[in-house]
Design a protein around this nucleic acid. Structure first.
Lengths: 233, 233
DNA sequence: CGGTGTTTTGACGTCGGTCAATATGTGTGG
DNA sequence: CCACACATATTGACCGACGTCAAAACACCG
């Protein structure tokens, strides 16, 4: 992870998507003065489970996986964070060590914002606090949904859901392949299963024309079919 | 669910445990004037998935299960809320319909607080907003942990963990049985498995002297053994 | 072109879900 | 207090889903 080009938060587009938009001009200025823009190459880590975070990271580009290592040695990917999302918030707010590791899935550009600016604004600007709260409430709902899926759906259903999720949140390239390319292992870690199980399901899906593949790229061929599968038909 | 005895929030002990403690005297007075104390009998519902909540519920006594119905018709219990916890916050803050159902596990006493008091205070008192934020951050961490457990641990490990959780969070009675009595079905729904599987594991645990039972009551006999099991030894 | 790391496929065993039958409560009204 | 109806708990038998180990096919890179 190294320093990159300089920009001002005030004119940063990604701000529109996250809670920083609730900051006043002056607050934003302070943040902008104290932030550090960094580039993170694919596979590099932004922070690790257990780290004490001294600030949050605002994603300007690329995608990060937030994962947690379980006792049996497997990574579980809990969330994928993309442009506009702020990561590390939870730990900074709860004043705890990081609960998850953040790793770049592809080349990224992130802004590190020291926690002082964040905490300060939280304590003085209720609009900002409420905005952050709203985002956290949304994350919590999503996490609850994942819990239900994990415990009640089969691996096949979850793989189908994962593909639909990837399409809806990261889109497709011009050839109809998912824009976000994940290794089979990463897909398995999102779904919470063994890599081989995941691969087997992928080839089954391909045989049944639900999806198409090209190298590690995956394209959705029959969205309706996948949806039905995910719902359990 | 019906109305019960009247009390003032200002002198309510459970307030110490939740975010209401960050309210000013005047704010608390308003809340107290607008709140409604209700009793909920075992098995009754406080709200259902999909309901539009017009306020939050502060638990004064008893325990509520927060669960979500999955497509296959099974309930997944996502959280158990006890004395001092506030439920429904997430939905009110996100201005969404309830994501989970809340049902009384035993007889409860709850205070309904109209959302206006809450939203108002959020928008004007940063201390309160931050306090709520901290609680939500804590819930989010717990949810992430549950996700990892659900996907990476065996049912046996999760049952062991559930018992330890119940002991640590709800304590034991004088005879060493878990103070919170759940039906086998509820235990299964916490763990995310079929009732029969859960029962089978319980009898195995009993045979191996990890736990003791008496009716539907369960007591922990070998805490260390359960811990080792939960960790995967 | 060999070497390293992913992807794919096969074979096998076990965990856990389902259905069905039986026991054990638990509450209700008589 | 009993008898009946009904809910909950327990056990057995069966089978499909999934994890694991091992090997082969394929890609990528120097």
């Amino acid at each position: 992870m190294k320093d990159g080009i300089e920009t001002r938060c005030e004119s940063c587009i990604v701000r529109q998507f996250n809670s920083l938009r609730a900051m006043s001009k002056e607050e934003l200025k302070k943040v902008s003065d104290s932030k550090i823009t960094k580039t993170v190459k694919k596979g590099e880590s932004i922070f690790e489970e257990g780290d004490k975070l001294s600030g949050v990271y605002c994603v300007r580009g690329g995608v990060s996986k937030l994962s947690k290592l379980s006792a049996n040695g497997k990574d579980q990917i809990v969330k994928l964070a993309t442009k506009g999302e702020v990561i590390g918030q939870r730990s900074v707010i709860a004043e705890e060590h990081a609960n998850l590791s953040a790793t770049a899935v592809n080349d990224m550009e992130v802004c590190f914002i020291p926690k002082e600016s964040i905490v300060n604004t939280l304590n003085t600007n209720p609009n900002f606090a409420v905005e952050v709260l709203r985002h956290m409430a949304h994350d919590l709902k999503e996490a609850d949904d994942v819990i239900v899926n994990m415990s009640q759906k089969t691996v096949k259903q979850r793989v189908a859901e994962a593909f639909l999720y990837l399409k809806n949140n990261f889109g497709e390239d011009k050839d109809g392949f998912l824009a976000l390319i994940l290794s089979r292992e990463d897909i398995a870690n999102v779904v919470g299963t063994a890599t081989e199980s995941c691969i087997r399901i992928i080839s089954e899906f391909k045989k049944k024309k639900y999806i198409k593949t090209s190298g590690k790229k995956i394209g959705i061929a029959d969205e309706r079919g996948l949806q039905d599968l995910a719902e359990g038909f």
